[in-house]
Design a binder for these strands. Structure first.
Length: 504
RNA sequence: GCCGCGUUGGUCAAGGGGUUAAGACGCCUCCCUUUCACGGAGGAAUCACGGGUUCGAAUCCCGUACGUGGUACCA
């Protein structure tokens, strides 16, 4: 049987690091086994609908190179892939569970539930559950007579369907990452399966849809582990036990102080979403890795290694290499703290190793955003090659490539001020003039002229290089000065020297 | 509170009864380079704690602590 996995996001906001990693592991597992990767939209909570969020998720996946085989966008034989559109099919399964005695109707209003919790709340029990103890005191088909229930249903009384958790049972399963895990059913509450609005909750929907979509392996975040017992029971009660997927509960990605939140991003200056997300309600913008200057290759590589390794020392992987080497069983069971420094290192490595031509578009966009026009492809290509080793993020190209196209706005005069002399100033005045008359404009000729003139004036060439660099690029950075001069051209070089001389 | 999951340098981590306990990021020193990087060579830094089991425990068992998640008609 072919491997089928799914990522099931709820379209309620930005796509988080952890979410992307869950997609990644799903994707890698599927592709490693030649299977299918499905994206299913879990939009059963109508109150949390956020316009644009679904579209945004697909854009993020596209940027990461994690395209689905089946989804709302890609189609497929197991649709619809949006749960809200599958609404009519859930009720019959919930009813079947009731008929078989595994679930029941509950007519308690939200107010009644709140009252129940208030009355039972105590130091020992801060969050009372609707469980096998309390269900006997509530208004449901277990406590009401058959006639009462029939009447209530006939009157269209708002109600939910809850699973009837066994009082004294133990369910266990083998998690692909954690091994044997077990739970006492009496400690879990009677989860709502079908809501009053007729929508399923996650618990029902995930089981029904995974079954209907023939999912073979179900990977999700560790936060689902406690409710796994409900899902396991549902697979059993619905009579589908033999086709239940294998489970893997992925470890959490943590921030500097516990759970990673988008607040951490703002607080510590790193992104937590894949791409920029603007909340349509508050207009609040949360920065994404893409816009921060990350390459998707690096983002994916970094995420893959956050919680997984192949047992060797290899750290740099292309997507194809990840697909080839990924093994869900080697995923760590412990949560991992996200390290932004390491994330940047991955990016730097990818900027250095990635083919220059494939970076042109991104670099050009970054520069354009700073009003730096780069129309000459050949020149841009050459420059990227020249400076990429000093660019950790794509946005660093503004500093390291920008001055090739646009004279620096400010010059770091302070860098050489203490050693600046009248003789040196004269040198540059003379040099600028001679440069103007240079017939062959190349690295060697410029450097030769510079050294000859320095020797003639009896000044150490080395001492003149820093001022020259500042005049050309504005600061203490960048590749060899003469190389820069060669690339920006005679006219521009002379102009920058003269402009600087006028200011110093 | 209860339940689940987890715990190897600051971070990511290999190792799963006998190792000088890998490697990477970050940090520090030096080399290269009259800039900044890249590259190279070094350095500091670790098995949460307490009990067992064993000739021998980072590795197996139990407990404690800590972290984290769940305990919704949210996913």
């Amino acid at each position: 049987m072919s491997v089928r996995v799914r990522f099931a996001p709820s379209p309620t906001g930005g796509l988080h690091l952890g979410g992307v990693r869950t997609v990644l592991y799903n994707y890698l597992f599927a592709k490693h086994h030649g299977g299918e990767f499905i994206v299913r939209i879990e939009d059963t909570d109508q109150t949390r609908f956020v316009p644009g969020a679904e579209e945004y998720i697909f854009e993020c996946l596209k940027w990461c190179g994690l395209d689905a085989d089946e989804s709302v966008k890609h189609g497929g034989d197991y649709g619809p892939y949006r749960q809200s559109e599958r609404k009519p099919m859930y009720r019959k399964y919930a009813e079947a569970l009731v008929a078989d005695g595994y679930a029941y109707y509950a007519f308690d209003t939200p107010e009644e539930l709140e009252k129940m919790r208030d009355e039972n709340r105590s130091e020992e029990n801060p969050s009372p559950q609707y469980d096998h103890r309390l269900r006997k005191k509530m208004r449901n088909s277990l406590t009401l007579t058959d006639d009462e229930v029939k009447q209530l249903l006939a009157d269209n009384t708002p109600h939910v369907i809850r699973i009837k958790m066994p009082e004294n049972d133990v369910v266990s399963f083998t998690d692909m990452i954690r091994g044997e895990v077990s739970f006492q059913t009496g400690l879990v509450d009677d989860k709502v399966l079908l809501k009053a609005d007729g929508m399923p909750t996650y618990h029902l929907a995930v089981v029904v849809d995974d079954y209907l979509m023939k999912i073979t392996h179900a990977f999700r975040g560790e936060e689902w582990l406690p409710s796994a017992s409900v899902h396991l029971l549902l697979w059993k009660y619905l009579g589908w036990e033999s086709s239940m997927p294998e489970w893997a509960h992925l470890p959490l990605i943590l921030g500097p102080n516990g759970k990673l939140s988008k607040r951490d991003g703002a607080k510590y200056g790193f992104p937590v979403f894949a791409m920029n997300w603007k909340d349509p309600k508050t207009n609040e913008l949360t920065e994404g890795f893409k816009e921060k200057g990350f390459l998707p290759e690096a983002f994916v590589n970094m995420l893959a290694l956050l919680g997984w390794n192949d047992g060797t020392e290899k750290e740099l992987y292309s997507m194809d290499e990840l697909i080839a080497d990924f093994d869900i069983k080697r995923v760590h069971s412990a949560g991992a703290k996200f390290d932004y420094e390491k994330a940047k290192w991955f990016n730097h490595e990818w900027v250095k190793r990635k083919d220059v031509r494939s970076m042109m578009y991104d670099v050009r966009s970054v520069l354009a955003a700073h009003d730096i026009v780069t129309d000459d492809d050949a020149k841009l290509e050459k420059i990227i090659e020249l400076v990429k080793e000093r660019c950790t993020l794509l946005t660093d190209f503004v500093q390291h490539a920008g001055f090739f196209f646009k004279a620096p706005a400010t010059l770091d005069f302070e860098a050489f001020k203490p050693k600046w002399t009248e003789e040196k100033k004269q040198f540059f005045e003379l040099f600028a003039g001679k440069l103007d008359n240079l017939s062959v404009w190349d690295l060697h000729s410029i450097e030769q002229l510079f050294k000859d003139l320095a020797a003639e004036k009896n000044i150490k060439a080395g001492e003149l290089q820093l001022p020259m660099r500042i005049m050309l690029v504005g600061g203490k950075f960048g590749p060899a000065v003469f190389q820069i001069a060669e690339l920006i051209g005679k006219e521009e070089t002379v102009a920058r020297i003269q402009k600087a001389l006028a200011e110093f």
